[in-house]
Design a protein around this nucleic acid. Structure first.
Lengths: 117, 117
DNA sequence: ATGACATTTCGAAGAATGTGGAATCGTTAT
DNA sequence: ATAACGATTCCACATTCTTCGAAATGTCAT
């Protein structure tokens, strides 16, 4: 990961609403959440939410897909992994001893609705 | 770590100059670097650098100490650890399986003076 | 085709951030 | 005491970010 990308990712997460939104998406797992739900939980007008979601999207931290009328956002585990790896390697004294990784992706066994990834 | 603090830490690192400065301090270890050296390496006027260093300081990511005429900045490993832990726990699907930690303190062969904090 | 719904785009105002020169403060040397 | 040094504070200016209502877009149901 390039420093530019790291700055972009850090900046995308460096806001109350965006960090909260991202956390909701982490919780939601691969199924993601529709924009409306996120807006509701955050208590922000939809246009404001879109603004923030675009930033996360632009940083590559989340993905977007349409499901009929709604647009579903979901976290992109690989991006967070890359960020964690960057921080571990560059901002932790170069001691990248332990693997930092989140879940690479793995939807895994999900009968009705596992807690998350 | 509270979300507020996480946002503050992420925001402090989310800038080209500050991320670079922080990386220099990581490289420098507990001995840290005088402001002037950092400014020189970053190629910014001293007043601009001070501004950025203050943000890192405010977020608790670095510490400050005076050494005669110069002011030495050094990373605070515990803060980065806390940030990494926060991200691992809250932004990685809750799978805080592996220890994320950087170095709690002790970097390498340090002859005199303890790392402080 | 019309209407309802979920989101995004547009636009404009206000807040916050980044920049750097000049002045100031604390420390050291003469 | 004076001068030089290293760094910070002050200040004004430019830029970027945030917010949100209104209008536009795409989708589904009738």
């Amino acid at each position: 990961m390039e420093p530019d990308q790291a700055v972009a990712a850090l900046g995308a997460l460096a806001h109350e609403h965006r960090l909260t939104a991202y956390r909701l998406l982490v919780e939601a797992g691969p199924d993601g959440l529709p924009a409306g739900t996120i807006a509701e939980r955050l208590g922000t007008p939809s246009s404001t939410l879109t603004f923030h979601l675009q930033q996360l999207l632009h940083a590559g931290l989340v993905s977007q897909r349409r499901a009929s009328r709604q647009i579903i956002y979901a976290m992109v585990p690989a991006s967070m992994n890359a960020l964690m790896a960057y921080l571990t390697e560059n901002c932790c004294g170069g001691q990248a001893s332990r693997a930092p990784a989140c879940e690479p992706a793995a939807p895994a066994a999900r009968s009705r609705k596992s807690p998350a990834v």
